[in-house]
Structures are given as structure tokens and as C-alpha cells.
């Protein structure tokens, strides 16, 4: 039993990371209706920025603060330069453009920092908290706490600030929002900046576990997609719940289902995506949309 509980805890640790990236995906999807295939790569790039600052001798938290600022600005810039020209284009165009961004950012990171793996310091202390035969590593607790904090901050931003209200208005109906005087373009850019920042947090959390290299986020992105699909692509809370469920499901499947083992775990998100899309396409917490042709 303790073994099982241990697996669940470890799954939640992994799930919190997926939740972080899923949160970033959901943020952009809510505001712009785009699923950003480059989200993982942007997070990876941000992590390299953090690494660069630490390499230059800055302490971890200072490097993190600078990285988040850089990511926020970068995200806004990408929205302005790359996404704005194709705003309102068909879904196919959007997917292709973000895939192009994916390839570009991945290669650019390889160009700047080479494809060799780099060590990334863990901000959380080693060791574990023991309770009832279950050991919860401090890094796991730290990741859960950070994702919870990000979640709480986003909630405060959306529910209790004027900017958040504007953002929700734009998400609900860009045309009406524009009519009441909200600067839609700026709000969309803000959404991308915010998503890039959240993504950067998830990248920095992942890096100590997976080693820093340009393809670091490729696998995580699939899990984040599964998490966002499960939670519903327009629900931030759903993304977090989805992330935790995916993480736990993956760990348990790897540990207890012989066919899956450790090497076929990547099949778990695929199965989750397929099942959710076929049974409940809007996800657990998402709203079903009525389509009009």
C-alpha cells in the first residue's frame, strides 16, 4: 500500500510539471483560440536564458526574475511579430505557423547553446519529507507549491484586477470587447506574454530533472497536451487537475501494467487524448462550443 501511495506521490510530482506547461497552453487557447505547438520550445528557450544568467554568476532567484521578465516580453513580441499577421486565419494556417515557430525556436537554441546537455541547478533542497511510509521529496513539494502559487496568482489576476477583466472580455468576445474600448491587440499580446512566463516557470522546474537540452520539452509537450485536453482547453483549473491526473496515470501505468513498462509510458497521454476526444471532446471542465458553419 505504501508502495502504491509512493507511486501516486511521484506521479503528482511529474503531473505538476505537465500542469505548468498545460496552464500555458490553456492561457493562449483561451485568449486566441490557438493551440501553441511552440509552447514547450519557448519554455525551453526561457530555461536557457535562465541558465545563461546563472552561468554569468547571478544567483538562482535573481536569474529567475530576469528570465520571467524576458519571457514575458518575448511572448508579447512573438504575438506581435509572428501571430498578428495571421490573426483570424484558418486553423490549419495557425497550426502550421506555430509548428514553424517550434522548429525555429528549437534550432535557434541549438545554434546558440549547442545540442550538448547542460546541468541545471535544483532550486529546492535534496531530501524528503517522510510520513506514514511515504517519502515526498522536497523538489516534488516545491514543484507542487510553485504550480499552486502560479495558479493562485492567475486566479487573482483574472478575478480581481481590471486587466484580468479585460482579458476575460476579450476571450469571451473580441468584437464586443473592442466596442467597449478594450485594446484587444494589446490584451492578446498580454495573454501571450503571460503564457510565455508560465511556460518559463515550468521549463525551469523541469530542467533539473531532465537536463537542459534543446529537445527537453518535446516529451513534456505531449503530456501537457493530454493534460489540457483532459481538463478542457479553456479551463486553467482543468489544466492543473488534468496535469496531475495524467502524471499519476502515467506513473501507475509504468509501475503496474507490464505491457507499458517504463519505455511505453509515452503511450499513456496518447490514449488519454484519444479517449477524451472521442467521449467528451470538451474535456472534464471545458465548455462545449456550438459550432456554426
Amino acid at each position: 500500500m505504501a508502495g502504491f501511495a509512493q507511486q501516486v506521490v511521484e506521479g503528482m510530482g511529474a503531473g505538476a510539471i505537465y500542469a505548468g506547461l498545460a496552464l500555458a497552453l490553456v492561457l493562449i487557447h483561451r485568449f486566441t483560440g490557438i493551440v501553441n505547438f511552440a509552447q514547450g520550445e519557448l519554455a525551453m528557450f526561457s530555461t536557457y536564458v535562465a541558465w545563461q544568467f546563472m552561468d554569468a554568476g547571478l544567483p538562482f532567484w535573481a536569474a529567475l526574475a530576469i528570465t520571467l521578465t524576458v519571457s514575458f516580453t518575448g511572448g508579447m513580441l512573438i504575438e506581435r511579430v509572428v501571430i498578428r499577421p495571421v490573426e483570424g486565419a484558418p486553423e490549419l494556417t495557425m497550426v502550421i505557423v506555430t509548428v514553424g515557430l517550434f522548429i525555429f525556436v528549437n534550432a535557434a537554441a541549438g545554434w546558440i547553446w549547442s545540442f550538448l546537455i547542460k546541468d541545471f541547478p535544483n532550486p529546492f533542497p535534496d531530501g524528503a519529507l517522510r510520513a506514514g511510509g511515504v517519502a515526498v521529496g522536497y523538489p516534488t513539494l516545491g514543484i507542487l507549491a510553485v504550480v499552486g502559487l502560479v495558479m493562485g496568482l492567475l486566479y487573482l489576476l483574472f478575478r480581481h484586477t481590471g486587466i484580468g477583466l479585460g482579458m476575460r472580455a476579450v476571450a469571451a468576445d473580441p468584437d464586443s470587447a473592442r466596442l467597449v474600448g478594450i485594446r484587444v491587440g494589446r490584451t492578446l499580446a498580454l495573454g501571450w506574454g503571460l503564457a510565455a512566463t508560465v511556460g518559463a516557470v515550468s521549463g525551469v522546474l523541469v530542467a533539473p530533472l531532465l537536463f537542459l537540452e534543446p529537445n527537453m520539452m518535446g516529451g513534456v509537450l505531449i503530456y501537457a497536451f493530454a493534460a489540457a485536453t483532459l481538463g478542457g482547453f479553456d479551463s486553467p483549473a482543468g489544466a492543473v487537475v488534468g496535469g496531475l491526473v495524467v502524471g499519476v496515470a502515467e506513473t501507475l501505468a509504468g509501475a503496474y501494467v507490464d505491457v507499458v513498462g517504463s519505455d511505453l509510458k509515452i503511450g499513456v497521454p496518447l490514449v488519454i487524448i484519444l479517449v477524451v476526444l472521442l467521449l467528451r471532446p470538451q474535456g472534464l471542465f471545458g465548455r462545449a462550443t456550438v459550432e456554426r458553419a
Binding site: T93, I96, G100, L101, F104, N106, A107, A108, G110, W111
Partner: peptide, 22 residues
Amino acid sequence: INKAAPGVIFGLLIIAVMYVAP
């Protein structure tokens, strides 16, 4: 030029093609 150059070219060209020459 660089091991990453093909990726950079691919990425930029995809986006550029979607803008100017669908």
C-alpha cells in the same frame, strides 16, 4: 554553416511562406 541551420531555415521559411506565398 551550423548543425542547427536547417531547422532555423525550415522554421523561418514555413512562417514566411504562410505570410507571403501560401
